[in-house]
Computed example of a mutant assay.
Amino acid sequence: MFSVTTKHTAFAAALFCLGLLAGPAQAQPPLGPEMADFTPIQPPRPAPETGFTDESGKSLALADLRGTVLLVNLWATWCAPCVEEMPALDALQAKLGGRGFQVLAVSTDRGGAKQVRPFYEKHGLKKLAIYLDPKTALTRALGAKGLPTSILIDRDGNMVGQLVGAAAWDSPDAIALIRYYMDKPVPASLQRAAAD
């Protein structure tokens, strides 16, 4: 017959073992009210290798920006909710851009830079670079079902969450969410690549 102490010890040992079998609890990103529509991608998936271009026509891929947390925003000048959120994306880039984070506002407009540049000027967008996907190859590869769609990609090139529709990207809730991913340790593989 077990004593009470032995029973408690055995019970605690069993719980400890079950905890080890279940693995460590995954920390969840902070999702305040302004980010209530953000959907974490579990488990995170590698971002596609599909290309897009910058304003000058230079070909790029998301892999070219590995090591930086990215908010890829798929949008168009004719999309009212997209137009509504562009100032918030510009403000987010002004606040966090260049410190391990970048907003990639990727336009799906068929007119390319000739259509997007005047839109930026009209709306006073000064911090966002122009990126283009006029044939919607990247948009389709990312699985976007509508515009705007924003996909958050971690430093390791994995899609960690998405938000469909306009959002207050310059809100404290959005900044807390993005900083959560910016503050994660840099993967060893990226540290080695930077050292080479």
Rank of each mutant, 00 (worst) to 15 (best):
F11H: 05
D173E: 06
L125A: 01
R110D: 02
D170L: 05
Y181T: 09
A188W: 06
Q26T: 06
K145Y: 09
A166H: 12
A141F: 08
V69Q: 02
P81T: 00
N73D: 10
V164Y: 15
A129Y: 09
D156T: 09
A13L: 12
K127W: 10
K7M: 09
R192E: 08
A176M: 11
K7D: 10
K114E: 10
L15D: 01
T77Q: 15
G67I: 06
L65K: 09
L65S: 07
R66N: 12
W78A: 01
K95R: 07
L142Q: 00
A195V: 10
D109V: 05
H8I: 14
P134K: 02
L20Q: 05
G57F: 09
A194E: 12
L20P: 06
L147C: 13
L60N: 07
W169F: 15
N73W: 02
Q191E: 12
H123T: 02
F11K: 03
E121S: 13
A27H: 14
L89K: 04
Q93Y: 05
T108L: 02
P87Y: 03
K7Q: 12
V72T: 11
E84I: 04
T53Y: 03
G111R: 00
L20F: 08
T6F: 09
H8T: 15
L152N: 06
T9S: 11
F11V: 04
A63P: 14
A36V: 13
T53V: 04
E34K: 14
I175F: 14
R179K: 10
A25V: 10
F11Y: 11
V72N: 04
Y131F: 11
K58I: 12
P118C: 01
A176Y: 10
H8P: 00
V72Y: 14
V116S: 01
W169Q: 15
K114W: 00
D183P: 15
P33D: 09
T50N: 08
E85K: 03
A129Q: 05
A137T: 03
A47H: 11
D170E: 11
L104F: 06
L20N: 13
K114L: 01
M1V: 12
P148I: 04
G98M: 04
M86G: 00
W78H: 05
S189K: 04
V186W: 07
A195I: 09
F16T: 09
E49R: 12
G146L: 02
E121Q: 14
N73L: 08
F16N: 07
C82K: 00
A14G: 12
P29H: 05
L132A: 02
R45G: 01
A168D: 08
E121W: 03
A91I: 09
R45Y: 13
T108W: 05
A188N: 15
G98F: 02
A137I: 01
D54M: 09
L31E: 15
G161H: 14
P44F: 03
V4K: 07
D183R: 07
A137V: 13
I153T: 02
V4S: 13
E55F: 06
A105K: 02
S56R: 15
G51R: 13
P118N: 00
A167W: 10
P46H: 13
T149R: 14
V83F: 00
M35D: 05
K135N: 07
H123I: 03
D109S: 04
A10W: 11
K126G: 01
E34G: 07
Q26D: 14
L18Y: 08
Q42I: 04
K127G: 00
T53S: 14
M182G: 05
T68F: 01
D90P: 00
A63I: 06
